[in-house]
Design a protein around this nucleic acid. Structure first.
Length: 681
DNA sequence: GCACCTCGAGGTCT
DNA sequence: CTCGAGGTGC
């Protein structure tokens, strides 16, 4: 212990500071080092003394005081937090070959071998980002979609292994620590024992218990869950030098007092990776927490930077996952479900079986061919697993145990819901109900899609309500939703005045939306969220989209013949036009109109597609793009048969090669200028 | 051939 | 929330 206790009556501020330091030190020894050095009873005495001082003199409370861990303010909801540096996901590998291929790709890019990797465990918990300003814990946020998560600061504050204040002298100005919140197996057992005693439902697995714990509105509840944390990554860093390697980052974290898992190593090449994986597999069951694999990261930071990213995952890291746990069960039946687009999906009904931390009773079989490929018959004993430990999947049948009366799956010829013909186009894998909106199943799905969060976001319009509205023929199209009255709603089953009013208010609120949301909500085939955004951006408002020809639609980013055709068909359909008109009638759905629709591209390069590559001598890429677009050209990112010209500068790479292969004319900057002036280059 | 998008699906927790 | 199949764009 450091320093001598000072009588609290004389110097409460100093005494409080000493108590805080002592309690946090004991926490650190207990939760991070796993070497308790202060008996629980003594901890409690000191803790109570600190609490007493803080009660008497609230001005002495500091945000990093251990008393703040027990949970203060009850939250009403979780605020969104935008991550300054996105929280990425990892690419996965399962087989040895995947790992060898990963190592080869990395070595090829870096141009040397063997590559040095940092290896660590892949915890089965929840990724989280902790912010420290001048060494003080100020904010915690969940991963969310990687770009934006939810603020869970007060809940995370209750996790005892997370330092509220970083140790050492040279703490950075700002640091975002990335890591995993998890629940140890022993804490999971304890919690479930308590649930049993209280005759409450037990949690299915530690991961879900931890996830539920973080989402508690009352931090006191979180504190009871006994969550743990391990740091393994970094987001933003200000006011300190970035450590040169991943392993040195983790060493630094340790110095700062952050919990870093000890089961880590630095290895060379694919052989080293596979050896680490094998060793970890042997230890897995003996570990005090669940892991679902290991993670490999190229160790040197400069090499990581060189490798870069593919979409949302770094190219320098790989998660090597353990094979999913499997279980045997009976296949009771294969039902089919009708999706929004009429897609008929066979679904396996199973005798419930506990596998990979959840009870599985249903599993998708994707399509008819998949059922054949796997040779699954009704009555079979089948192997079930959770793909990526999430999605239930039927792996295959145990042929030895096939009963004589096992029946093959037959794709129905008529829709089980509306009786319309089921059709499967020659080159498609999916069979579809041809009933369209006549089919109640499709109508329900269309309504659900229309109301879902990323579309018009009508809160409270769930599946059950939609079922009633459609079955009783109260609502036929999305437009009908806006004619519902509170009175009418309150007549629905199990719908008291309060919920009727709430739903009515949600519908009112949904009237104010945005063009991309509206387009997406219509549920046009092949038009998802991102295509809807592209369309809105390109045209600015709805009318020109409705009036657009297939050719004009093709000019939109990422819209090809199939999407253009689908859009055009939908918008030419009289019924759809009517619904859209009703939806945007006065007093109904509105959205802020964007800039006036750009005129049909005209200029010397109208309708031409140009690709830029390399560095041009005098123009920046942006400028060149602007000039080309001003002349009516579409500037694409990669070379294809549809490309009319490639403008190549210095250090042009594969795009130039591709252009030459395809015989696409290649211009330099000079040639591009001539082209823009209407000359033939 | 690769990257991306759309679509569909199941289970747990709030 | 997450995954996987299939499809699309280039």
């Amino acid at each position: 212990m450091h320093g001598a206790p000072i009588a609290s009556a004389e110097r409460p501020a100093e005494r409080a500071a000493w108590l805080r330091a002592e309690l946090e030190r004991a926490n650190y020894a207990y939760y991070v080092l796993d070497q308790p050095d202060l008996p629980d009873a003594e901890y409690d005495v000191l803790f109570k003394e600190l609490q007493q001082i803080e009660t008497d003199q609230p001005e002495l409370i500091t945000p990093d005081s251990p008393t703040q861990r027990v949970g203060g303010q009850v939250a009403t909801g979780f605020q969104p937090v935008t991550h300054d540096v996105p929280m990425l996901s990892l690419n996965n590998g399962f087989a040895d070959e995947d790992i060898i291929a990963f190592d080869k790709r990395v070595a090829d890019t870096l141009g040397h071998t063997p590559v040095e990797y940092a290896c660590e465990l892949k915890f089965d918990g929840l990724a989280i980002s902790l912010r420290y300003d001048d060494g003080i814990f100020v904010q915690a946020a969940t991963r969310g979609d990687g770009a934006t998560g939810e603020e869970v600061t007060e809940n995370v504050r209750t996790i005892r292994s997370i330092p509220l204040k970083l140790k050492g002298k040279n703490v950075p100005k700002r640091l975002d620590v990335r890591g995993e919140v998890l629940m140890f197996k022993r804490d999971f057992e304890k919690i479930n024992a308590r649930q049993r005693e209280a005759e409450q439902r037990e949690f299915a697995n530690p991961r879900n218990a931890a996830a539920g714990g973080l989402r508690q509105l009352d931090p006191k509840m979180t504190a009871q869950r006994q969550l743990s944390f391990f740091a393994y990554g970094i987001g933003m860093l200000q006011g300190a030098e970035m450590p040169p390697s991943h392993s040195s980052l983790l060493d630094w974290y340790k110095e700062l007092g952050l919990p870093v898992n000890a089961e880590r190593g630095v290895v060379q090449g694919a052989e080293g990776l596979l050896e680490f994986f094998r060793k970890t597999g042997e230890q897995r069951d003996g570990l005090p927490y669940d892991i679902d694999g290991v993670v490999y990261k190229v160790n040197q930071r400069d090499e990581q930077d060189k490798l870069g990213f593919v979409s949302r995952a770094p190219r320098f890291a790989l998660a090597h996952k353990f094979p999913a746990q499997e279980a045997l069960t009976q296949l009771l039946a294969i039902d089919v479900q009708v999706g929004r687009t009429g897609a008929i999906t066979p679904v396996a009904r199973l005798t419930p079986v506990f596998v990979g931390g959840a009870t599985v009773t249903n599993a998708t079989l994707h399509n008819e061919d998949e059922v054949r490929r796997k040779d699954i018959r009704i009555g079979d004993t089948v192997i079930v697993r959770r793909a990526g430990d999430v999605i239930p999947e039927v792996v295959g049948a145990i042929l030895d145990r096939r009963p004589d009366d096992a029946r093959e799956f037959v794709m129905p010829t008529e829709c089980p819901v509306c009786g319309s013909k089921i059709e499967r186009l020659p080159d498609e894998a999916i069979a579809r109900c041809t009933g369209g909106l006549i089919c109640p199943a499709q109508r329900k799905q269309a309504l659900w899609h229309f109301a879902q969060r990323r579309a018009l976001d009508i809160d409270g319009l769930g599946e059950k309500i939609i079922d009633q509205l459609v079955d009783e023929n109260i609502v036929r199209t999305p437009a009908d939703l806006f004619n519902l009255g509170v009175r009418q709603l309150s007549e629905l089953d199990r719908f008291a005045d309060k919920s009727a009013q709430n739903l009515y208010d949600s519908i009112e609120k949904a009237k104010q939306t945005t063009l991309p949301r509206f387009l997406y909500a219509l549920g046009i085939r092949h038009v998802g969220e991102s295509t809807a955004k592209d369309l809105a951006k390109h045209f600015g408002s709805l009318d020109p989209i409705m009036a657009a020809s297939v050719e004009e639609l093709l000019e939109v980013n990422d819209v090809g013949p199939v999407v253009a055709e689908s859009l055009h068909n939908f918008l030419s359909e009289e019924h759809n036009q009517m619904v859209i008109e009703q939806l945007r009638a006065p007093g109904k759905v509105t959205w802020p109109e964007g800039p006036p629709a750009p005129k049909a591209p005209q200029g010397v390069l109208a309708g031409k597609t140009v690709v830029l590559t390399g560095t041009l001598p005098t123009l920046s890429r942006e400028d060149a793009k602007e000039m080309l677009e001003a002349a009516g050209a579409k500037v694409a990112g990669s070379v294809s048969k549809k490309t009319d010209y490639v403008v190549a500068g210095a250090e042009a790479g594969s795009k130039l090669v591709k252009a030459e292969e395809l015989g696409v004319p290649v211009l330099d900057e000079e040639g591009m200028r001539k082209l823009l002036e209407g000359e033939t280059p």
